[in-house]
Simulated assay, not measured.
Amino acid sequence: MTVTDINTLADRIEDLLPQTQCTKCGYPACRPYAEAVASGEAGYNQCPPGGAQGIARLAALLGKPIIALNPANGVERPRPVAIIDEQVCIGCTLCMQACPVDAIVGAPKQMHTVIAELCTGCDLCVPPCPVDCIAMPSVTGEATGWDAWSQRQADAARERHDRREARLAREREAAEARAAARRASNGASDPSQPHRAAAGAAATASPAASANANADADADAKKRAIIQAALERARKKKEELAAKGQGPLNTDHVSADVQAQIDAAEARRRRLGLAADTDKPSSKR
């Protein structure tokens, strides 16, 4: 089979996957798993969210027998949705960084909120939470696999995942450009190294990055509206809790270990240019 044939088959396999981006298949996203199945590197029974129906779909495409889900990859189950206990949340942003479809909104040291209609139930936000404030209740009753999911939801999840990956790539490129500019600025102050200033100036000129940033503006408009609505709901809830004398209880009482995780996350955000250099971690040790 040629490379072109493998890529074409991978496209068809990817179209049959639920696009939860959960990594339970053993690959970082649905697309890499599709490519692995197409090349024969992975089995077609490694996707728990797709379940038995998903295996049957892939078997029909590949001309293979229907086999059981590989238990090493998990079990078929009703679809869950992440719910954050906002009175326990400490605003560390680790869950936001883990979400593969940008279904969590919030800000450092503020309560986070899951946009339920965007959540794929991937579970990836649960392990990094340092205060165990995320629950994953089932929302589909007894329905599992494709009975608990739809092609429309899968297509939307894939689009959000792809937009997120493109955004992260732009942010990395922008961070690299800023780092190059800083190096150029340092080099410009050293008359013995004029070539460094020139190289830095060239690096900061990135019309391709600007064009890519503008390309997604329309596609992101709807998502921004959804996020804004979710933030407004979170704001109203926060006001209601405050009126009752309630609210996030842990933001000012964080253990040294948890604070170290938050500080490390914020340091990574600054290195990537995702936070202002003036935003210093406020350790409470």
Results as ranks from 00 to 15, higher is better:
residue 3 V to M: 05
residue 123 D to N: 13
residue 255 S to C: 09
residue 261 Q to H: 05
residue 148 A to I: 05
residue 241 L to Q: 13
residue 7 N to K: 11
residue 174 A to D: 02
residue 134 I to G: 07
residue 15 D to L: 06
residue 267 A to H: 02
residue 2 T to N: 12
residue 277 D to R: 02
residue 208 A to S: 14
residue 64 K to Y: 03
residue 253 H to W: 12
residue 121 G to K: 00
residue 190 D to P: 01
residue 215 A to M: 09
residue 151 Q to V: 09
residue 75 V to E: 13
residue 245 G to T: 09
residue 117 E to W: 02
residue 40 G to N: 03
residue 148 A to Y: 09
residue 69 L to P: 11
residue 162 D to P: 02
residue 4 T to Q: 13
residue 242 A to V: 06
residue 277 D to L: 09
residue 170 R to H: 09
residue 111 M to L: 07
residue 238 K to R: 14
residue 155 D to F: 00
residue 98 A to Q: 08
residue 242 A to D: 12
residue 54 G to A: 05
residue 206 S to T: 14
residue 102 D to F: 02
residue 131 V to N: 08
residue 41 E to H: 07
residue 79 R to V: 07
residue 249 L to Q: 14
residue 261 Q to S: 05
residue 258 V to I: 15
residue 73 N to D: 04
residue 191 P to N: 00
residue 222 K to T: 12
residue 242 A to W: 01
residue 4 T to L: 09
residue 44 Y to P: 10
residue 102 D to T: 07
residue 56 A to C: 00
residue 7 N to P: 03
residue 193 Q to L: 08
residue 218 D to G: 14
residue 97 Q to P: 03
residue 14 E to Y: 15
residue 163 R to T: 11
residue 91 G to D: 08
residue 208 A to E: 15
residue 15 D to A: 15
residue 239 E to T: 09
residue 43 G to Y: 04
residue 195 H to L: 10
residue 30 C to V: 05
residue 281 P to L: 01
residue 264 A to F: 04
residue 246 Q to E: 15
residue 261 Q to L: 13
residue 158 R to P: 01
residue 42 A to E: 12
residue 129 C to P: 04
residue 16 L to G: 02
residue 4 T to G: 10
residue 199 A to V: 04
residue 10 A to M: 02
residue 69 L to K: 03
residue 162 D to K: 06
residue 271 R to V: 08
residue 230 A to L: 03
residue 6 I to Y: 01
residue 235 R to T: 13
residue 82 A to C: 03
residue 209 A to S: 11
residue 130 P to R: 05
residue 16 L to M: 06
residue 217 A to S: 10
residue 270 R to W: 04
residue 110 Q to Y: 09
residue 257 D to A: 13
residue 223 K to N: 10
residue 141 G to M: 07
residue 33 Y to K: 02
residue 81 V to A: 12
residue 63 G to N: 01
residue 236 K to G: 01
